[in-house]
Write a protein that binds this DNA or RNA. Sequence first.
DNA 1: GTCTATAAAACGATAGAC
DNA 2: GTCTATCGTTTTATAGAC
Lengths: 196, 196
Amino acid sequence: MARTQGSHSELTAPRIRAAALKLFARHGYAAVSMRQIAKDVGLQAGALYNYTPDKQSLLAELMRAHMEDLLAARAEAASAQLAPLEALAGFVRFHIGFHIERPEEVFIAYMELRALEPDNFADIEALRRRYEDELEAILRRGAAAGVFAVEDPKIATLAVIAMLTGVNTWYRAGGRLSLEEVEEIYWGMVRRAVGA
Amino acid sequence: MARTQGSHSELTAPRIRAAALKLFARHGYAAVSMRQIAKDVGLQAGALYNYTPDKQSLLAELMRAHMEDLLAARAEAASAQLAPLEALAGFVRFHIGFHIERPEEVFIAYMELRALEPDNFADIEALRRRYEDELEAILRRGAAAGVFAVEDPKIATLAVIAMLTGVNTWYRAGGRLSLEEVEEIYWGMVRRAVGA
DNA sequence: GTCTATAAAACGATAGAC
DNA sequence: GTCTATCGTTTTATAGAC
């Protein structure tokens, strides 16, 4: 039961990730020092390097984990093959719900792409592209079936995702609208926007 | 005609702003040093302080100028009082056109808000709010007249602006679609989204 | 108005004791 | 695994010569 010096590492790694996540989201990757992260965790700066080879890897791992969480959650939510209208409704609600639950990860994933070195950037972009393809496939299916009227499925995909992700810029739990009401309002706008 | 030492200051100020704009947009405010900006202009770092009291003011002035340009251009474009449908079409085309012409300013204005000190942040936020109010007023007028079906004009405002500003993340001049085609596609989505 | 030089502090990352 | 200490570099900003 008694812990000796340095024995609680299995708790330290997630605490470092949590501190980096919070500070990167709040101040930006470039503006946050390793010393600030260490102080937030209660360590000296040098100790961080037992958990990450460098600052860049810490950022890249946060972003990779977020994108993989997103794809895994989406794969589960979309396991059933639905008609285009129901599939689109499911995507809209999934996207809003998932993103609202993780405002810090979402903020970093969209704002710190330019802070990634080329290899990390390519990895994260590929994951993001896979996610966008999920929505694009729904819109193409619906357009082919004649239930959606989208002039350009790729642009409609990007437009819908931009609109939905924008919820994160203003929604606050406990505000005027519940999450369910927000999802309903956005679903209405998306449904009409794609001519369904 | 011959210039003596230090005589070309009237050209230096805009060159500093242009360099800061380019570098802040590309790498982020915190990641750009005064030395980098000076090198881009062809100066030593200390010379920049003849033009700005500090780095923060340089960012704040870039953002303020952008927001004031936006409001002035919008005021001119919207000088005529139109019916809600035509006013909305005008706003959509104005927003896309203005933002596409200034990708660096737009990127900074959205990404570097957190880098602003509190007083500067409040100033910029107030300007942004004035711009959003222009669209909200159009949506409220249209809803009151029964030509739009928006459940919540404030949320619809934020949703439309997020969607339109998202064009900047993917549009490149010379690509598959002309700017006019893009404006037309987005106008179609916005028009349907608001139930017009 | 720009230069060189520098002050004072902070940066990422490492070495070695424990 | 974390500490103290430090290396080598870079940072913002200023001082004073020209």
